[in-house]
Design a protein around this nucleic acid. Structure first.
Length: 417
RNA sequence: GUGAGUGUAGCUCAGCGGUAGAGCACUGGACUGUGGCUCCAGGAGUCGGGGGUUCGAAUCCCCUCACUCACCCCA
């Protein structure tokens, strides 16, 4: 409320109260990925601007109007990464990973930057967790990453979500289809909204994304891309779908799903939650990108999950947070004695919180109550004389006297449950 | 980039031309080694910022910044 510094537009601070949720989400993804043999990769946040121009597409909105870009002191054109795939592909090619690894599985996590106007679930700095598998053509590689997403989200505690899946076909059938619907749509171009008129010329597939009801109505007569797939693409999609069925993954096919990034081929998918129409994760196959970016002809598939959106989604559940044992040390002798116990606790990984200020027992209990701890350890001159310590349960007020020799054992016991 | 709405105490908000308010939170006390309940008292704000109209602006007008939501686009 003072006139000092405030955070930049579209950015946010994540305070300790919330960080626990973030860590839970991050941990779940990492654990699942590691089980599936994915290895972490960390790439720089700053890259040559043209990496993204080439990777994402010069005409995409991300590149045209949403990139944070600047010139460095030597006049080089730099951009803050707006997504993760381009950087990982760059690193994969630059380090020639394909020579030693037939199949390379990566996961990454970190901030991405897009200069667009903030709104619900959308920030200028946001966090993505993503995976990329290079070198695998088989549809089960697509299935595998869907499964990773599925398991991770369930582990986090999200249940009500569904995978929307589709196939865009390979370069050949995709292009054929685009030409076809471009013709179809042009015939009745007057019936579409202004935005769609531009889309029909520039990128006809995107018309399927329009939320306008009469545009949607007009699309009903347009043939589905699934009818235009070549035999190989069709087989690929069928096998992928069978994988999902086999593993009981909740999905629905929607031939209108096209995804915004131009590099996708064949499989594309999104995770949508029932409550919101906002997607919490999305991904797909990009069989041509590695080659287009100067590498060998290697197929790949990946996804990116919006961690901000996932955290937002699980926010309302109450969190069973681990609480420390609150040490109440009355007087100097108790403080010294308490510190010895504290040292043991650190060794035993028992979570502890101490306020070293000189306060009355009442004050201490009041503070402990406010923090919401389950247990207090009370130690004063009386206890020291008797060689005991008091453990007080803050829920029911019940307290027990514990011999100081037994205290660590007892602390371990009570913090377990 | 376009459109709409909101900025008043730490938080949620009332006031909408005439002395800056409430609830919750906070601090102290009743209660000096036993918290949660209750009661009493207290601290707190250039009313987002700048300019204008007016005897007088939190209130009306203009500009600006931020937030929220929608569009574009996307995670």
């Amino acid at each position: 409320m003072n006139g000092n510094f405030t955070k930049l537009r579209g950015m946010k601070d994540i305070l300790p109260d919330e960080i626990e949720l973030w860590q839970r989400v991050e941990k779940a993804f990492i654990e699942v990925c590691e089980i599936f043999g994915f290895k972490e990769i960390r790439t720089p946040i700053l890259e040559n601007k043209y990496l993204f121009v080439r990777g994402i597409g010069a005409t995409s909105d991300i590149v045209m109007k949403e990139m944070y870009e600047f010139k460095d002191k030597k006049g080089r054109e730099i951009a803050l990464r707006p997504e993760g795939t381009a950087s990982v592909v760059r690193a994969y090619i630059e380090n020639k990973v394909y020579i030693t690894k037939k199949i390379a599985r990566f996961y990454y996590y970190g901030p991405m930057f897009r200069y667009d106007r903030p709104q619900k679930g959308r920030y200028r700095q946001f966090y993505q967790f993503g995976v990329e598998t290079f070198g695998g053509k088989h549809p089960f590689f697509d299935g595998e990453i869907v499964q990773i997403l599925d398991i991770s989200l369930k582990k986090i505690g999200i249940e009500n979500f569904v995978f929307i899946v589709n196939s865009l076909g390979c370069r050949i059938c995709k292009n054929k289809y685009v030409e076809q619907i471009k013709k179809n749509l042009q015939e009745k171009i007057d019936k579409f909204c202004e935005d769609c008129k531009i889309r029909i010329e520039k990128n006809p597939l995107r018309v399927f994304d329009c939320k306008n009801t009469f545009c949607k109505e007009n699309l009903k007569e347009v043939p589905s891309i699934l009818n235009y797939l070549c035999d190989d693409c069709k087989n690929h999609f069928d096998t992928f779908v069978n994988f999902l069925l086999k593993f009981n993954i909740n999905f629905s096919i929607n031939s209108n799903l096209v995804r915004g990034l131009d590099y996708y081929t064949r499989t594309v998918f999104e995770v949508s939650t029932e409550k919101d129409d906002i997607a919490i994760a999305g991904g797909g196959r990009y069989d041509n990108l590695v080659e287009e970016m100067g590498g060998p002809d290697i197929p790949a598939v990946g996804f990116a999950a919006g961690i901000d959106r996932i955290v937002q989604f699980i926010k309302k559940e109450d969190k069973e947070e681990k609480k420390p044992v609150y040490f109440i040390l009355l007087g100097n002798n108790a403080k010294l004695k308490g510190l010895e116990i504290l040292k043991e606790c650190i060794k035993e990984k028992i979570m502890v919180e101490v306020d070293y200020e000189e306060r009355s027992l009442s004050d201490n209990l009041r503070i402990a109550n406010k923090i919401g701890v389950k247990w207090c350890l009370i130690l004063g001159d009386n206890e020291i004389e008797k060689g005991i310590m008091i453990l007080k349960n803050m829920k029911d007020g019940y307290q027990i006297e514990v011999n100081e020799k037994e205290i660590i054992k007892k602390l371990k016991e009570i913090t377990k449950c």
